[in-house]
Design a binder for these strands. Structure first.
Lengths: 340, 340
DNA sequence: TTAATGAATGTAAGCGCTTTCATTGTCAAC
DNA sequence: GTTGACAATGAAAGCGCTTACATTCATTAA
């Protein structure tokens, strides 16, 4: 409370040591004698001393900042991932610097340049579809880098995620196995991950000889429940005999369910619905909605842990982590009565 | 690409001026001659020069960082507010530093101390229920401060939000006017804002002589759709003749609707449902759900704009902004057929 | 006893900017 | 032709830390 903020030299003076020793007591306690260390600790406490991060960053040419690039803040998938990231970054005393690429490679390059210039402790980037320039920036960033949201054979350095293609494949296959033969695809905001899900959908149907391009309904708009209603309407208007949908995400799936209720289309008997991500509410909808469960918060947590381990020089057991997914089968796809 | 990152002095040398001039060209362009300014601009572009924020912060004892304190990252209400905040902070070239108080005054004090020590450009804090110490820290922060999420007569400096109490009052009153007489309250995570909504609910019922304490069902858990189902079950188990609920938020309301469907309780005839926040999906549920619409993203945007205006010395017309709310009446409370 | 060793600490030179103050040059007014 | 005012620029002193290197001192080995 007394006037100005205490600085390192104030602490040093009060503890009867040099500034260097205080700095060491803070950064590498093991090199200062226990007695001195304790004395310094007390003074710091008494003064309520907090190091000036700018000065530290400037002097040491490194920071405690983890930079994160996501393509969107609107998407609630990223909200879960970010929550995971913040949760562990916080407890490990790293700051998080968030930036939004708006699904643009160019923006990503620019943001990366800024980030890298600030010598962050580590970098988290979304996906594996960076431009060659962005990849180069990441390779030369001079800090650990981790990609999230996907799997891939050729990560810049580390990667944690799951296979969107496989998730969609499995979901679509499930619909077919349940007896749906005209399975449509509903997708909003066709980013790279959505594209991969579309691939998985296509592959699964082609394998059964059931693929029909016209059953794919997409929009560049961001996904919402309302949009799910609209896309279903659009699909049904085409009158192609669709009897099920694989939705690119759960918002759409819920919207589809609502729209089916409104049109008195019975789910799952007349129409099957499968979502993606398994939001909590899928389990309690009526009927409950089948979805591909993904581990979003865990992905964020894991990414930061791996990153920090590498930052702090600990060995990272496995630089490529596939968190997988799980198809959670519920009522919305039980055309065939479940065997008990 | 060539080796190291260019620094201010490199730019200065290449432009044939002193470092001071380059610094000025960046910070207050109006004081350097147009010719020199242009030359510097070119060199900066050519070198891809980006100022080192740590050095700048250290030298100028101020930063471009806006600190934000929220009580939770899990809450999707805050997600919307944060989106608004990031959106405008980004375009105005401010960095956002997010911290989570976990609904704890003590954590808030600690975080505030850290933030204030870093001389942020501005501070955004949630609510008006700070501890006296936190208030003192804010008053002496040496930067503009804005409180969000609520209204109040005695803001630390600026405030933007709405009245939770009034919103709840109006919603509850609406239920009563529709002919529901045993209106319950469902609440999760009883934070200050929830408490105010509970007050509004109580006042509205007391005004009609319909208040019954036993109709209040709450839990400290974070709200989810599933929790809405559970709370309704708990309420109905009490067998108090409840014929409507005012839910503390839309997640709960949706869960209540799902549970009613499951129990074949007809909404709105036998049971009325009203939510809070008006999430997008409320409009397309079946029946559509009445809710109190709040302007969350706008609140974030507005807060940052006011903050930045003040940071940059522009006059802020009104330091206390009430964004209000709007009761959106939908099917879930239409016990009495709507007049056409 | 002495030199070598190593642990603990101090000294001082920056890190890359900002900003105060001083200097230079230009132009209008007298 | 001076003088003063003002605009444009430069010189230099930090901002609060970190860290390479130097110093001190107690041990230990020879």
């Amino acid at each position: 409370m007394s006037g100005k903020q205490a600085k390192l030299s104030d602490v040093a003076r009060a503890a009867g040591v040099s500034a260097a020793t205080v700095s060491r007591a803070l950064r590498k306690p093991e090199v200062v004698s226990p007695a001195v260390r304790e004395r310094i600790r007390q003074v710091i406490e008494e003064f309520g001393y907090v190091a000036n991060p700018a000065a530290r960053a400037l002097a040491s040419t490194r920071t405690d900042v983890i930079g994160i690039l996501v393509p969107s803040l609107t998407n609630n998938v990223f909200a879960d991932v970010l929550r995971g990231i913040y949760t562990v970054a916080e407890t490990r005393h790293y700051e998080v610097q968030l930036a939004n690429t708006r699904y643009s490679n160019l923006e990503e390059e620019n943001l990366l340049r800024v980030f890298v210039g600030q010598k962050p402790a580590g970098l988290i980037v979304t996906g594996i579809d960076q431009s060659p320039l962005s990849r180069a920036l990441l390779k030369n960033a001079g800090c650990p880098v981790i990609q999230i949201m996907e799997t891939g054979d050729d990560p810049v350095e580390m990667i944690v995620g799951f296979s969107h293609r496989k998730g969609a494949y499995e979901a679509t296959q499930h619909l077919v196995c349940q007896g749906y033969s005209r399975v449509a695809f509903l997708g909003a905001r066709m980013d790279h991950r959505t594209q991969r899900r579309l691939e998985g959908y296509r592959d699964a149907l082609q394998a059964k000889g059931l693929f029909d391009e016209r059953l794919i309904v997409t929009t560049p708009r961001a996904s919402t429940v309302t949009l799910g209603c609209e896309l279903l309407a659009k699909l049904l208007d085409k009158d192609l005999g669709a009897d099920a949908v694989f939705c690119n995400n759960d918002d759409l799936a819920l919207g589809v369910l609502f729209e089916c209720q409104r049109r008195r289309i019975s789910v799952p008997q007349e129409f099957g619905i499968c979502g993606f991500n398994d939001l909590e509410m899928m389990a309690v909808a009526n009927p409950s909605i089948t979805s591909v469960r993904t581990y979003r918060q865990e992905m964020g947590e894991r990414a930061v842990r791996m990153l920090i381990d590498r930052i702090e020089g600990k060995p990272v057991e496995e630089p490529r982590v596939d968190l997988g997914f799980e198809l959670i089968v519920r009522e919305s796809t039980q055309k065939r009565p479940r065997a008990y």
